[in-house]
Amino acid sequence: MNMVDVKEVSKTYKQGKVAVHALAGVSLSIAKGEFCALAGPSGSGKTTLLNLIGGLDTPTQGKIFLDNDEITGLSQSRLASIRLNKIGFIFQSYNIIPVLSARENVEYVMLMQGVPARERSERARAVLDDVGLAGMHDRRPAELSGGQQQRVAVARAIVSNPAIVLADEPTANLDSQTGQGLLEMMARMNEERNVTFIFSTHDRMVMDFAHRIIRLKDGLVAHEQIK
């Protein structure tokens, strides 16, 4: 059963009078529970593809299905609802709300989903403990290291049991040791919770962890490798 189906998707950006083809007819499928990396050099279209799968952007052509539902052509509020309930995001940096504590950051998504306060708090504490942040629940982002902040982001991404987690170069701003720890944790989440992970990366270490690597080049799938 596929979690993601991308069919003949193109994305063209206008830069002044110049049209930039970020994706040029990409088709691929990602099954439920995969731990998959979109790899490729800068400008190959991996972040664009991740944004399109996450409903953050709309394709110029083609169709995208998430959990068998088509998301192309949906309204902004419908897309927001899908992002809230089906997708967890981890970004490269600046990805947690600076005025909220680690626990509040994790709770915030559940607040928007309408989860009752007590349940929110319990689930947030449990998932923070799970990502190795026991005892740091009430720290603000400024009081956490980069690696710890990314762990908060992972906790926030998985706390509401999304169908899929999209991570855009999650280790780019971390040292190799911290990055490895984070990847081990995400791999464990993938195994234990059967959450589908899709990374965009050009980090060798992330590719080593991935079960499947989809290499993009010039907006097209150039090569696929399944381990």
């Binding site: 509020s77 927001a80 992002r83 809230l84 970004f91 600046y94 990805n95 709300i97 928007m112």
Partner: peptide
């Protein structure tokens, strides 16, 4: 700006 972008990515509607 980045923070509002993040909030929208997380699923906040424009109205919220």
């Amino acid at each position: 700006t980045r923070e509002f972008g993040l909030l929208k990515a997380l699923g906040l509607t424009p109205v919220r």
